[in-house]
């Protein structure tokens, strides 16, 4: 029996640990730190709110406040405020641009609005800095370490974890506790966020992005 058990046992070359397992982790860690700094660099200062826009939103708030707490003030005070606000709203005194076209005219194309464009560009820039390094790392792993089994987990798992832990390795018989290189990459991708919090402090760019990228990767599993 003992010989049978030993025959079934699979042994990993320590070189795999030194040249595949640890490098993937270190590279991902370093790329994460690098991306954090790049994100900080390319993120422009937050856009300052326009005075007129603030005024518009506060005026709307004033109306709703008056509606909600009308009982708290005497009737004459309420009446004068109501008259003032309805007139102001009717004439559009508090609007951001009072001369804007009224309802019925189709909304302008968002592409021509510089404000909108800027916001979209900001989002794009972030997306790109998130996507590009991940795609590169994934390509690197697929190219060099495709089909590698890199680590054995020290605890048993059910069969359902096979697709999660052994993506890129198509074997039916291998024990679920063995982890393939590509899966090791994904484990790192999602598992390193708390490490980043430790290194870079709260609110670093990585956590957000990991949450965002999650949706992208789901079909791969």
């Amino acid at each position: 029996m003992a010989t049978l058990g030993e025959a079934k046992q699979m042994i990993l070359d320590p070189a795999i640990r030194d040249w595949v397992l640890l490098p993937i982790m270190v590279v991902m860690l370093l790329v994460g730190v690098l991306r954090h700094h790049i994100t900080v660099l390319i993120t422009g200062t937050p856009k300052k709110p326009q005075l007129k826009a603030v005024r518009e939103s506060k005026a709307l708030m004033r109306g709703s406040q008056l509606r909600a707490f009308r009982n708290a003030i005497p009737p004459h005070a309420f009446a004068s405020r109501k008259a003032f606000l309805t007139e102001a709203y009717d004439q559009g005194k508090y609007l951001k641009n009072p001369n804007a076209p009224k309802e019925g005219v189709p909304a302008p194309n968002p592409m021509t609005d510089p404000d909108m464009m800027e916001g979209m560009m900001e989002g794009m820039k972030k997306q790109v800095t998130n996507m590009v390094p991940q795609m590169l790392i994934m390509g690197w792993i697929n190219f060099f370490f495709q089909g590698f089994v890199v680590i054995k987990l020290p605890f048993p798992l059910t069969l359902r974890f096979k697709s999660m832990l052994q993506s890129g390795v198509d074997t039916r018989d291998m024990d679920v506790t063995w982890v393939s290189s590509l899966s090791w990459y994904f484990l790192n991708l999602f598992g390193l966020s708390s490490v980043f919090t430790l290194i870079l402090g709260d609110n670093n760019g990585n956590i957000l992005y990991i949450l965002g990228l999650h949706h992208y990767n789901e079909p791969i599993y």
């Binding site: 707490f69 708290a72 405020r81």
Partner: peptide, 12 residues
């Protein structure tokens, strides 16, 4: 008094 009416509206 007008100011205070506003304050009451804001923080009733």
């Amino acid at each position: 008094a007008y100011c205070l009416e506003e304050l009451i509206l804001l923080q009733a």
